Simulated scan of single mutants.
Amino acid sequence: MKLIGSLASPYVRKVRVVLAEKKLDYAYELENVWSPDTRINESNPLGKVPCLMMEDGSPMYDSRVIAEYLDTLTPVCKLLPPNGRDRADVKVWEALADGVLDAAVLVRLEKTLRPAEQQSEAWTTRQMAKVGAGLAVMSTDLGESPFCTGNQYTLADVAVGCALGWLAFRFPEIDWRGDYPNLARLYDKLSERQSFRDTVPQQ
């Protein structure tokens, strides 16, 4: 398999963490989707990373689809319960973490790609409200549990860890550590894992 991605994307990081936790071999191809000469559309018509190229040459895209597929390839470090409510709970956590990222990414694009005179303060405020609300729910739902869904490390923790790590990388002004000490404790614990140490976001 070959993973097409970037060193900064939190969605790519999620897939890289899963690949590491599952101990799966893959080639890694860096791609800047914002570059004029990007070729990502040859693999993903949506022009996004991550994109996983399968052994038969077919592409798989969207980090949630890729992560769920990778978890089926080996019983090593199962990240998703087999079925039922437990599995849905993990996927809801993942959707929440990705939703926080979606909103924050939109704010970053507004501020970095759009001329200052064209930027919408109302739009930015709306998206940042989603980030704040998402973080608050994460903290409430985590409570004092060691992991997002209780006592077991799952894809929920991978997704939340990647979201928090990217916020620390791109939005250091958001004091989620001070506001939500339990999220800080979870992130610090996740950051000790080799899979997280090897995938710290970079420019």
Rank of each mutant, 00 (worst) to 15 (best):
R39G: 08
A104W: 00
E94D: 08
C51A: 14
T149L: 02
G5P: 08
M54R: 15
Q118I: 00
L155M: 15
A95Q: 15
Y28R: 09
V137M: 14
M1I: 12
F169A: 01
G161H: 03
G99M: 07
A184K: 09
C51H: 09
A136Q: 12
C148N: 04
E173P: 00
G5R: 11
I40R: 09
K111M: 10
N182W: 01
C51D: 12
Q119C: 04
A103E: 04
L52G: 03
L142P: 02
F171K: 05
A156E: 12
G57S: 06
A184P: 03
Y26E: 14
A136V: 01
V33H: 06
A104K: 02
F147Q: 04
L167D: 01
L80H: 11
Q119T: 03
D98N: 10
L183V: 05
A168K: 08
L96S: 06
N151P: 03
E173D: 09
S35E: 15
N182S: 03
R13L: 03
L113W: 01
V15R: 06
R108T: 02
D71P: 04
N151Q: 15
W166S: 04
Q203P: 03
T154W: 12
G178S: 06
E55S: 14
V76C: 11
A27C: 12
T199G: 05
N32F: 01
D198C: 09
V49P: 07
G57Y: 05
K130V: 11
M128T: 07
P59D: 10
K130Y: 10
L183E: 08
L135E: 05
V90C: 13
D56G: 09
A163K: 11
D179I: 00
N32W: 01
R64N: 14
T125Y: 00
S120R: 01
P36N: 11
V200W: 08
I174A: 00
R87S: 08
K22Y: 06
Q152D: 13
V76G: 00
Q152Y: 02
D56W: 12
A133L: 12
P81C: 05
L96W: 03
Q119D: 07
L7C: 11
G99Q: 10
L24V: 09
G150L: 03
V76D: 14
G165F: 03
R197F: 02
G143W: 06
P146A: 13
V12N: 10
L52Y: 11
F196T: 04
S35D: 15
S63F: 07
Y61P: 08
N41S: 09
L79Q: 05
L24R: 14
P75I: 10
L46P: 00
Q119P: 08
M1W: 13
P75R: 12
S58A: 10
T124Q: 07
W166F: 05
Y69I: 14
R170V: 01
D37W: 02
D62L: 07
V76W: 02
G150S: 04
E42C: 01
V200I: 15
S58L: 09
W93N: 10
V49T: 07
R108K: 12
P181I: 07
V49C: 03
K189S: 11
V76K: 09
Q118K: 13
P172W: 04
C77V: 10
